[in-house]
Simulated assay, not measured.
Amino acid sequence: MPHAEWEDFTFDGIGTRWDISTPRPLDASVRSRLLAIVERYDADWSRFRSDSIVTAMSRQPGRFELPAEAAALGDLYRTLYGTTNGAMTPLIGASLERLGYDAAYSLRPAGSALPAPRWEDILDWDGTVLTTSAPVVLDIGAAGKGQLVDLLAAELHASDVAGFLINASGDLLNSGPEPVTVALEHPYDPAKAIGTVSLEGGAICASAANRRAWGDGLHHVLDGTTGSPVRTSVATWAMAESTMLADALATALFFVPGADLERTFEFSWLTVFSDGSAAYSAGFEGTLFS
């Protein structure tokens, strides 16, 4: 990893490992503020916590106030819901729970695949206010970790931290002065790479069917229209200016060709399919191994 001489601030949050690298050690006050942002985000958005706002939505319908970042998150999800014809949706939580990816991490299916409810039937997301007509299990996992990276980056900038690299279990945001060489993990063997790409600035995020996989062919990337795991693609990477966008588009690539998404979003991408073939954008200036 580049910047070997930099200092690392490592911690656990929202169920994943974080590493923030900086030229000098972060002040204790900055570290405390970063950890508070992570805790607050988890307390609002986690479907795995009994005290979160999202869990309250799953118990009864109503009007729910969420923090400021909800507006951008809702706008992005609404756009991708339309672009994917309902395949990518924040209402996929009940489908994940049905297949075993529940708050208890049972990893035991409780029934057959369950399509997500239609957004237009059950959810009104207006800025920071969500109004539901029935209990819903909201899951913002396709973009939430990326958004949290951006929130931490904003705090680092506000604290006058000059240059940093945030690594959220492989989702990276580089705000340092030098490019970072990123290995592209092999979708079937985490110990190997299928190539590399140089991240000069901005974010790169990945999504893969081998991450959070269990049972017979079950994994966390579900098609909202069917509730079933996607089979055609096995791994995707997206590079964008914001980590939230890169994170969300890495999932959207499972449902829509990257060339189609480029009509709406400015990003570069790579998709590896289950037959071993790959497609990528002209802007994805990486090296794929033969």
Rank of each mutant, 00 (worst) to 15 (best):
P115G: 06
L130T: 03
I92Y: 00
A113P: 13
G86H: 09
R78L: 05
R98Y: 08
E120T: 05
S112N: 14
A113M: 12
M88T: 01
L96M: 12
L130M: 11
S112R: 13
A116D: 09
P109G: 02
G93M: 03
P135K: 03
P109L: 03
G82P: 09
P115N: 13
G82D: 15
S133W: 08
G86I: 00
D102Y: 12
L107C: 05
R108N: 04
S133F: 08
R108T: 06
T83F: 02
S106E: 11
V129N: 07
P109D: 07
L123P: 07
A104G: 07
R118E: 13
L114K: 13
A113F: 14
L107P: 00
A110H: 11
A94T: 04
G82Q: 14
D102F: 13
L99P: 14
D102T: 02
A104V: 04
T79W: 13
S95G: 04
P90G: 04
Y101N: 06
G86M: 08
G111A: 01
R98G: 01
L114T: 12
A104C: 04
L96G: 01
G100D: 12
D126P: 10
D124P: 10
L123Y: 11
Y101G: 03
S112V: 01
S112P: 05
P117Q: 00
R108W: 02
D121V: 06
S133Q: 13
L96D: 11
G93N: 01
R118S: 11
G93A: 02
N85F: 11
A134T: 15
G82W: 08
S112I: 08
Y101W: 07
T131S: 15
A110R: 15
W125N: 01
R78S: 05
P90Q: 09
T132P: 09
S106I: 13
Y105N: 15
A113R: 08
L96F: 09
G100K: 05
V129I: 08
L99C: 04
G127N: 07
T79Y: 09
T128P: 15
Y105W: 15
I122D: 02
L123T: 07
A116R: 04
S133T: 15
N85Q: 05
L91H: 12
P117I: 03
T83N: 10
Y101A: 11
L130F: 04
I92E: 06
T131K: 14
T89V: 03
T132N: 00
E97K: 04
R118P: 09
I122Y: 06
D124M: 15
S133M: 02
A104Q: 15
D102M: 01
A116Q: 13
A103M: 12
D124R: 15
Y105L: 10
A87Y: 02
T84D: 06
L96K: 09
G100E: 00
S112T: 15
R98N: 07
R98D: 12
T84W: 05
T84G: 05
T131M: 05
I122W: 08
T131P: 09
T84E: 07
G82I: 05
A104E: 15
Y101H: 12
W125G: 05
